[in-house]
């Protein structure tokens, strides 16, 4: 089988396109790269969506934790403690077990222009169920990072905002929030990287693979088991992840520049990835 064929057969296997039967014997390097690459689609999917969804929720939780109202701060603190204090591995398992208990019903949602059939069954599928777990998990970690940054917003900045007569919402939108983001960004970059790595746990515990559509590690395990040689499949996963990590660092670095563009050069927060292994 040629390399081009391997890619056309397996490059989108994880989404259910291409050859349905996975390679069994005489597996070529191209097939391994194509399959593991198709699995990476899911790793990217979980990382990107969980981060996007988690971002606003994390801001909310951070504000809750910083609030003087116990009705807001206690739930926020508990949420952060539980999700940061327990292994993601166990969270996946527990959520899967909880999701299968949801009664299986389907309903239609009429959006006016299109009819959607929604099924509660989807909760036990990785694409939704695991995404929810990752969303909650990253929200807790990011919230802690944002909370730390929130406490370090310079008092003077806030007083200046008061002095020029901003109301509470203006003050938050124009001063507190942008400053918090700027301070939190280096750590938040770390969180994004760790989050990307953690997506490899999805099919390892709890969530089953349907029609052998899984993530990069799922296929690597399959291939290592079929070829009896872990020395090819796992390094391929590693290479894919190094590229993915570099892309994350690049993207977040560009954002960091933007957040710091108004600062004097020596006061700029560098994307110092060293001191802040925060997760």
């Amino acid at each position: 089988m040629s390399c081009a064929e391997a890619f056309s057969n397996y490059a989108f296997r994880s989404l259910g396109y291409g050859e349905r039967i996975l390679p069994k014997a005489d597996i070529t390097l191209c097939e391994q790269i194509a399959l593991i690459g198709s699995g990476m689609i899911w790793n990217v999917y979980f990382t990107v969506l969980a981060l996007i969804a988690g971002f606003s929720f994390a801001t909310l939780i951070a504000l809750g934790k910083a609030s003087s109202n116990p009705l807001a701060s206690i739930p926020a603190k508990t949420f952060i403690f539980v999700f940061r204090g327990s292994p993601l591995f166990i969270q996946f398992f527990l959520f899967y077990e909880a999701f299968v208990l949801i009664p299986k019903v389907a309903g239609d949602i009429d959006l006016g222009f299109v009819q959607l059939t929604v099924e509660t069954r989807w909760f036990t599928r990785a694409w939704l169920g695991a995404l929810i777990v990752m969303f909650l998990n990253t929200s807790a970690y990011s919230a802690e990072i944002f909370y730390g940054a929130l406490r370090n917003v310079p008092k003077g900045d806030l007083e200046a905002a008061d002095a020029i007569g901003m109301n509470a919402s203006q003050k938050f939108r124009r001063v507190t929030w942008p400053t918090m983001l700027r301070l939190a960004w280096p750590s938040y970059t770390n969180e994004a990287i760790f989050m990307g790595h953690a997506t490899t746990l999805v099919f390892l515990s709890g969530f089953p693979a349907w029609r052998q559509a899984g993530d990069a590690l799922y296929y690597a395990q399959y291939l290592a088991e079929k070829t009896f040689n872990p020395f090819v499949a796992y390094p391929i996963v590693a290479a894919f992840f190094i590229v993915f990590t570099l892309i994350i660092i690049g993207g977040f670095g560009a954002m960091n520049k933007r957040l710091n563009r108004h600062m004097a050069p020596e006061a700029r927060g560098k994307l110092k990835l060293s001191l802040n292994v925060i997760r």
């Binding site: 990287i193 990307g196 790595h197 953690a198 490899t200 746990l201 390892l204 590690l217 690597a220 395990q221 290592a224 872990p230 020395f231 796992y234 390094p235 996963v237 590693a238 992840f241 190094i242 990590t245 570099l246 990835l273």
Partner: peptide, 18 residues
């Protein structure tokens, strides 16, 4: 930087056997 780029699980699956 190597370890930063690669998920720990991949290391765990690989390092002990190697």
């Amino acid at each position: 930087s190597m370890v930063r780029g690669v998920p720990d699980i991949v290391f765990f699956m690989f390092v002990p056997i190697a």
